[in-house]
Design a protein around this nucleic acid. Structure first.
Length: 304
DNA sequence: CTCGGCCCTGTCCA
DNA sequence: ATGGACAGGGCCG
């Protein structure tokens, strides 16, 4: 086992590991105490969280990365040197102070930023991100997370680490071999054929979600909707939480409620125009960061 | 292009 | 106890 720690005190805007991985933007992390989304860690957010990088992202065997936040450091344990992986996955390379500073003055946005100071966006591996947000349709975050765990356990490559067996999220090849019936048995419901067909599209080379990186934001969103089960909202989630389009604002039910309550003139009757309007309202370049804070704030605190 | 009906299933609440 | 509503939507007509 390799171990290390990343100092957080000099990180612009700070860091909050629990808020980052439990805010409903990523489903590739699990709490070692198995109480994800249930309660807060004992003090200072010092629970251990683990993710497994799929072999398609490492070029070799899957990589287990475990981390916890403690006393100004992000401690980690891994099968490899995990420093660069953590910086990438948890966006420790973002200047969060600058992002907050670039956000328009607004009571709702100020409250959201204040409440979860240090929360960062994630940079999830793309295929797992795509599948997890296909699964997110009409679903609560804890159940989405459970689906991803079952998919990993059933189809992902096993890895031994620290006396336990972990599973990587399945590759497109692995998942394309699943049947709709098998996926329904994992409680995916009507999302089962969406996941299977999307995995098949990626596995056969018909299209790969990573290709969206090379496009302008709105073209990338359009490109991603070719995958089965992916509409504009899910496409925006993949653009934001995996492909570095920080301006993407997924229009989910929470943000739509916020638009109706706080920014009614941004409602334009269709996704593309409403999206453009709220993106401007949220400051443009980092609008997706703002959206994620607002989403977590409204969902968790029931603020209106 | 917009709209409504429909889709799986666990959980919450009357 | 038991059924209806609802969950970070998408597809199809």
């Amino acid at each position: 086992m390799e171990t290390g720690e990343i100092p957080l005190v000099s990180l612009p805007g700070g860091f909050d590991l629990q808020a980052t991985v439990e805010s409903g933007q990523s489903y590739v992390w699990s709490r070692e105490d198995d109480r994800m989304y249930e309660d807060t860690p004992a003090h200072g957010g010092d629970a251990w969280y683990t993710t497994v990088l799929p072999e398609t992202d490492t070029g070799g065997a899957p990589v287990v990365v475990r981390a916890r936040q403690s006393d100004g450091y992000l401690e980690w344990e891994s099968t490899v040197d995990a420093h660069d992986h953590l910086v990438r996955l948890l966006r420790l390379d973002d200047d969060l102070d600058a992002i907050v500073a670039a956000t328009p003055d607004d009571p709702l946005l100020d409250a959201a930023f204040e409440r979860y100071r240090g929360m960062r966006l994630v940079r999830d591996p793309t295929f797992p991100c795509l599948v997890s947000f296909i699964c997110s349709a009409q679903m609560r975050v804890s159940r989405i997370h459970g689906m991803q765990e079952r998919l990993a356990r059933e189809y992902g490559t096993p890895v031994e680490f620290d006396g336990r067996t972990y599973h990587a999220f399945p590759t497109a090849d692995q998942l394309a071999g699943a049947t709709e019936a098998e996926l329904r048995d994992l409680s995916l419901g009507y999302r089962a054929p969406y996941v299977q067909r999307t995995a098949e599209m990626v596995a056969t080379g018909e299209a790969h979600p990573e290709s969206a990186r090379n496009l302008d934001y709105e073209d990338a969103r359009e490109f991603l909707t070719q995958f089965v089960g992916v509409g504009e909202k899910v496409a925006d989630c993949v653009a934001l939480f995996s492909l570095d389009f920080l301006e993407a604002v997924p229009l989910d039910t929470w943000i739509r409620t916020a638009i109706a309550d706080h920014y009614p003139r941004c409602e334009r009757g269709n996704y593309a125009d409403t999206s453009r309007a709220i993106r401007e309202q949220f400051g443009g370049e980092y609008a997706g960061y703002v959206q994620t804070y607002v989403f977590f704030h409204l969902r968790t605190d029931g603020a209106a």
